[in-house]
């Protein structure tokens, strides 16, 4: 009996880890969407974190907590650097500029032999555990909930609704935007390192356009009116391809169909309704 249960857990262990890391990615997206900023650099930041983490583990053998800290710090620094110029952009222009960042980095990984080039980095030891991934997820989620109920949440909402008015109200819009971008980058980097340390391998093509769009879809499908939305969205989109395995050839057909139906019937996301603050 125990053996069966063990097998069951073992079989779905990576999937469960994937749920957790993708939920963190969803929250990373949420951080910027909260301010109405369509920054799609999350995949690029995830890549920076994944490469930083994997290289520190493989080449220097640093302890895992230190690796994770660095994997969050380096993309955060990168966000600080590129944050200035991109602050000027909004809407689709910001989106495409940040996607461009991912593409430029992809070419850089491919051309850098020290980073494995086209072959990527393999043999990354398995260090991510259930406790680490979901512990971090819980802390991050709690942080977002607390922030959204405080004056930070109200300021974010004001910026999202009308940036000019928010400025008039005395909110430092640029500081908020920069902080959101840095937090978003740190979370994406963290998720990237966690992913690298349970899937043994990272490659240069994993952090480009497609990844950017799927991270965005975690947040949008789940809904961005509450931090639980992106988490739920990530869970659904990560689990679907695995749950649909019995359909064999039609697996991705059903996967696509379910996404279409969910969006049509719940256009504001699965958790699109407001369940937030009382009074304000």
């Amino acid at each position: 009996m125990m053996a069966t249960l063990d097998d069951l857990l073992w079989s779905y262990q990576s999937l469960i880890y994937g749920l957790g890391t993708n939920a963190i990615l969803g929250l990373s997206m949420y951080a910027v969407l909260q301010l109405g900023q369509l920054s799609l650099g999350q995949a690029a930041f995830m890549g920076i974190g994944a490469y930083t983490g994997a290289l520190l583990t493989l080449r220097l053998g640093l302890p895992f907590p230190l690796v994770l800290a660095a994997a969050a710090m380096v993309p955060a620094l990168a966000a600080l650097v590129i944050g200035g110029p991109t602050m000027k952009l909004s809407g689709v222009h910001l989106a495409i500029a940040t996607i461009g960042l991912g593409e430029v980095l992809r070419v850089a990984y491919i051309n850098t032999d020290a980073m494995g080039g086209a072959l990527g980095l393999s043999g990354i030891p398995e260090k991510s555990t259930f406790a680490i991934i979901f512990g971090l997820l819980a802390v991050i989620l709690a942080g977002f909930i607390l922030a959204s109920r405080s004056k930070i949440g109200r300021a974010c909402e004001a910026i999202r609704e009308d940036e000019a008015a928010a400025r008039v109200m005395g909110i430092d819009v640029s500081a908020y935007k920069m902080t959101a971008l840095v937090i978003s980058a740190a979370l994406a980097g963290l998720a990237g390192a966690l992913n690298a340390h349970f899937s043994s391998f990272i490659g240069p093509n994993e952090f480009a356009f497609e990844a950017a769009v799927s991270i965005l879809s975690f947040a949008i499908l789940g809904g961005v009116t509450t931090p639980f939305g992106p988490v739920l969205g990530a869970f659904v989109l990560t689990a679907l391809p695995e749950l649909l395995r019995p359909f064999h050839d039609f697996r991705l057909v059903f996967n696509g169909l379910i996404i279409v139906l969910v969006v049509i019937f719940l256009p504001r996301g699965i958790l699109g309704f407001r369940i937030r603050r009382t009074g304000g």
Binding site: V213, I220, V253, N255, G256, V262, V263
Partner: peptide, 16 residues
């Protein structure tokens, strides 16, 4: 953005 995600599902569906 919901239109972006709905077409993402659509692409998966139609391509498959």
């Amino acid at each position: 953005l919901s239109s972006l995600i709905v077409t993402l599902g659509g692409v998966l569906l139609m391509n498959s």
